[in-house]
Design a protein around this nucleic acid. Structure first.
Lengths: 102, 102
DNA sequence: TTTGTTTTGACAAAAATAGTCAAATTAATT
DNA sequence: AATTAATTTGACTATTTTTGTCAAAACAAA
């Protein structure tokens, strides 16, 4: 179960980089990068994309990880997690067909 | 595909109530109730619970509808909707086991 | 102990969300 | 068609949430 934070932390360590270096390359405060790695704060989508580029990761996979973190957090303390997600998927697909004008 | 707004609008109309009446009973501005019904604004969880009580609806079902609306909206324009939700479910379940101290 | 790195927390800035209200629009009634 | 009633819209303010900044504390390594 690898969260967004886990991923970017592993990448950084594998590449032997310091927080300071990543922070300066991405123009994000080092304290915030640290918080991202530990899941204490949620990056914006733009920041996720920056990380993907910087670490040369598949952008979609990283966004999936980040989005799923967010969703997991919003439903964490709810009943019927499975049901909520099933309905959410139906709605999303339905709304998408409408949006695409079908 | 019934959204939260659809549900509370149908309930109100079935019971032959005016926005004004619902608004006053729930102590929510009538303009906002109108916006809830049309999905223009998202209620808080407390407001969802008020609606459930007022219309005598199953609270969990209404919360499911409201939560799934939210989730559907956050993933609407993403790729891999199914994948995101699958991962989100795994994470949620995993986090829950941790939270419950297992 | 000194130096380097990461984490923490207080604070300010910015953005997103929520509530209020009156006017505009739409629908129903006479 | 005119009047009355109901709903919707939009501008505005208030509140809450999120984000960024910075320095000091904690931790780790040399």
């Amino acid at each position: 179960m690898e969260t967004f934070g886990d991923i970017i932390k592993n990448e950084r360590e594998n590449k032997g980089l310091l927080l300071r270096q990543v922070a300066s390359a991405l123009e994000i405060d080092q304290a915030i990068v640290s918080k991202f790695e530990r899941g204490e704060r949620k990056p914006t989508k733009e920041q996720v994309e920056k990380f993907a580029e910087f670490y040369d990761l598949d952008k979609n996979k990283l966004i999936t990880s980040w989005l799923s973190d967010q969703i997991a957090n919003t439903i964490l303390y709810e009943e019927n997690i499975g049901e909520v997600l099933k309905v959410a998927e139906e709605k999303a697909i339905y709304l998408k067909t409408i949006h695409d004008g079908r």
